[in-house]
Simulated assay, not measured.
Amino acid sequence: MKAIRYHAFGGPDELRVDEIPVPHAGPGEIRIAVHYAGVNPSDWKRREGQYQAFEDGVLPLTVGVEASGIVDEIGDGVSGVAIGDAVFGFGDGTVAEKAILSHWAVKPAAVSFAVAAGLPVMTDTASRALDEVNIKTGQTLLVSGAAGGVGTAIVQLACLRGITVIGSASSPKHGYLASLGAIPTTYGPGLQERITHLAPGGVDAAIDVAGSGVIPELISIVGHPARVLSVADLSAEQYGAKFSHGPPVYPELILANIARLCADGLFKLHIAGVYPLQQTADAHRESAQGHVTGKLIIKVC
């Protein structure tokens, strides 16, 4: 089968289409014929070697950790799913024609395969970040870099929890943020003054999604580093803020919940671009530029 792999850490040119053996589902796993796979900043950061300090991996490595598709093999001990079911979830090496999922949910008929493929990482990251920053109903949250995939999820999930959200992004993306329920503002110089105007009662917590070096400013805005969290800046802890990363804690619960929210029209994902399997490197390049609104997706079949 075809899979996107890299044989050395480095830039997007390290990615290649390889022919590799078809994997088989082990105990507690399922295999899917992949329709679509999501693109995440962690994919190209991992490819660059940024995660070597806290992840084990033997080269060559197959790209991707989330996908949607049709179940075609079921491992021992698995129940509640059948061959032919449409599912989405977390796996390893999902940018391939076949992939093993370790955690999954049934895809609602009202949700496309493309959208479903982009949901797992962003919703898990967003849910974990909201829990870890300890933001409560009725409080105000600042999301720095709110228009990307994880930001899109944080804004919507926070609003569903009754939290007031201020989201920073470039001016052309303000309409998008407003459509998600956020109060938009621009990033860059003068952020603290703008936030003071938008939230005269103060901001209770801040989440950095973009990793653009704003942790000290977010701490100044919130007033305490323990109420600031980043999902993208590895240096956050140097300032006393939190750095949040996986693996998922309650993946099945999160996947089932997002499936329900999407089916009910309470959660939406904007797909910024769909790339064929052979153009995965181009998707990585676009993601690394940091200007994606919503999510990039790889079409496998």
Results as ranks from 00 to 15, higher is better:
227 R>D: 07
229 L>V: 08
245 H>S: 10
251 P>C: 05
150 V>T: 12
196 T>S: 08
199 A>Q: 00
212 S>A: 15
235 S>Q: 09
262 C>K: 04
178 A>W: 09
221 I>N: 06
180 L>S: 12
162 G>F: 06
153 A>F: 13
211 G>H: 08
215 I>W: 02
264 D>K: 07
194 R>A: 04
187 Y>R: 14
247 P>C: 09
199 A>Y: 03
154 I>H: 05
204 D>M: 01
197 H>C: 02
184 P>I: 05
268 K>L: 08
160 L>Y: 09
245 H>R: 15
229 L>T: 11
259 A>L: 04
261 L>P: 01
192 Q>D: 11
219 I>M: 03
157 L>K: 04
230 S>Y: 03
150 V>Q: 08
176 Y>D: 06
155 V>E: 01
254 I>D: 15
185 T>A: 13
189 P>Q: 02
240 G>E: 01
171 S>N: 13
180 L>K: 10
180 L>M: 15
178 A>E: 14
251 P>M: 05
233 D>H: 04
161 R>E: 11
268 K>I: 14
208 D>Y: 05
245 H>A: 09
194 R>V: 04
203 V>Y: 01
221 I>H: 07
182 A>C: 07
229 L>E: 08
263 A>R: 09
195 I>A: 11
199 A>M: 00
211 G>S: 01
167 G>Q: 08
206 A>R: 12
267 F>A: 10
266 L>D: 03
155 V>C: 13
150 V>K: 09
187 Y>E: 11
193 E>R: 11
240 G>V: 08
156 Q>R: 12
207 I>R: 04
194 R>D: 00
162 G>W: 07
155 V>W: 09
151 G>L: 05
163 I>P: 00
159 C>H: 07
240 G>W: 01
189 P>L: 04
265 G>P: 01
183 I>H: 12
169 A>L: 10
236 A>R: 01
153 A>L: 14
256 A>N: 13
200 P>L: 01
154 I>A: 12
206 A>N: 05
156 Q>T: 12
171 S>K: 15
183 I>C: 10
229 L>P: 09
239 Y>T: 12
193 E>I: 02
208 D>I: 01
177 L>G: 14
151 G>T: 09
190 G>V: 00
228 V>T: 13
190 G>P: 02
254 I>P: 02
190 G>D: 03
226 A>G: 09
190 G>T: 03
153 A>P: 11
168 S>P: 13
229 L>I: 06
242 K>P: 04
222 V>F: 00
